[in-house]
Design a protein around this nucleic acid. Structure first.
Lengths: 233, 233
DNA sequence: CTCCGGACTTGAACTAGTTCAAATCACGCT
DNA sequence: AGCGTGATTTGAACTAGTTCAAGTCCGGAG
């Protein structure tokens, strides 16, 4: 599994001296993303990608160690667009409004890929896969995603209770991963169920957070947060 | 994707007139399971399975439409052994004790497969896969698994609050799926983290259930259950 | 201009899941 | 015993991800 002799042409977030290959690399990504959207992941062969980009298959493999690594690129792209799509929601003030908006933005951005997202998730769920959300390789994308939820929390007015503020972004991100799993399995028209889940669950989350600081609940909240911290990898 | 001309040699739970092929079918399953345990999923090729069982590859495909379908068989096996391993825990009385025991039993049974369980989960998470826990094909296995948690709930003394009793088994099963995901990603020695999570989280679940019927909590519990029902496929 | 090393490309193979058309086998019926 | 039919079985191909060894290309050193 060590890097091939040639060169490791850079992970997602990495910057290197501008080589000529950068162009080719981007061409491959763009072509792959287009074909994924057109025909789905499994039915887009590496040969098809190479053909459509006007290269040889082995050349594509010079830039991406495997088809999985292309998926990683896909995530980076989605992540980026999620941020953009979420901008409007982040201009609101209420915590629940912000959270709901950001979640809907995520669903909106992923929508075109719903048909074959299962394949992607299947790849990503494997701890060994570079595109696993917990892998070192996707550390950058993960930080960005958690950062989005940090914005949700920190920009909220009235401010979120201090006790939970630190842990909440990561928890929300985890919940978002869960929501994605739900979405993948959601076969309703235009994934309406997922939309509805967001609309129903976000006020509930807000309520729980508000309740969490009532005198009677404090010890439970404390214990739960302790559990969460204890259990985090 | 319709059945091949020959015959659909039966889904997991199905009974058919005892054909000769039944033997062969079981031979394949046993061989595959052994090889999976020995070398993992990906490195066990269909050719290797066929060789070890003394058949041709295409013959194996006569009995199993795909490698994924073999995974389904794997789940059925695990499920069965989970039940056996859980027997002792189900002889206890306290809800938390029972739940904890059943969860530990699950982890114990899965342990030998931890190294490559990621591949299995990756296959199963795809809604299209027959081995998805939500698929029609695994309805039987799913019912059995939920049944296990129903036993946990219904056999508990003192009895679990009536309000949540109906929904709890399915929720616990979902939580168990989540626990499995955690376990897959748990790289600690002998998955100790997962064990610890079980030990910490089960009393917590017990506490939440007890609290849920306090007068102040009732409306929240009701709303949450309503949400759960609304959101279930 | 020429040469060198590293960046980039490529066609040909290799592997493994899957399919297919053509056997072969088993067995009840005549 | 001979036959028909459906159940089994098989070798050979096909597809697609991946690897490999052998180039080709390009920019800077001399």
């Amino acid at each position: 599994m060590s890097e091939p002799a040639g060169v490791p042409p850079g992970r997602v977030g990495e910057r290197r001296p501008p080589a000529h290959g950068e162009r080719t690399r981007e061409l491959i990504v763009r072509t792959a993303l287009r074909l994924f959207a057109e025909r789905g992941y499994e039915r887009t062969t590496m040969r098809a990608i190479a053909d459509a980009a006007g290269l040889s298959v082995s050349n594509a493999y010079y830039y991406f160690r495997s088809k999985d690594h292309l998926v990683q690129e896909f995530y980076a792209d989605i992540q980026h667009r999620h941020r953009e799509e979420a901008a409007e929601a982040l201009s609101r003030t209420g915590f629940v409004d912000r959270l709901r908006g950001v979640l809907h933005a995520g669903v909106t951005v992923m929508a075109p890929y719903h048909g074959f997202a299962g394949s992607f998730v299947g790849v990503a769920i494997n701890p060994r896969s570079p595109s696993s959300p917990f892998s070192d390789a996707s550390a950058a994308a993960r930080e960005a995603a958690i950062g989005l939820f940090r914005d949700v929390v920190e920009g909220a007015k009235p401010a979120v209770d201090r006790q939970v503020r630190a842990d909440l972004p990561e928890l929300l991100w985890l919940a978002y991963l869960g929501l994605t799993l739900y979405w993948v399995h959601d076969m309703s028209y235009e994934q309406d169920r997922t939309r509805r889940l967001i609309d129903l669950a976000t006020p509930f989350v807000g309520r729980l957070i508000r309740i969490s600081r009532l005198p009677g609940m404090r010890p439970i909240t404390t214990d739960l947060l302790w559990l969460v911290r204890k259990v985090r990898s």
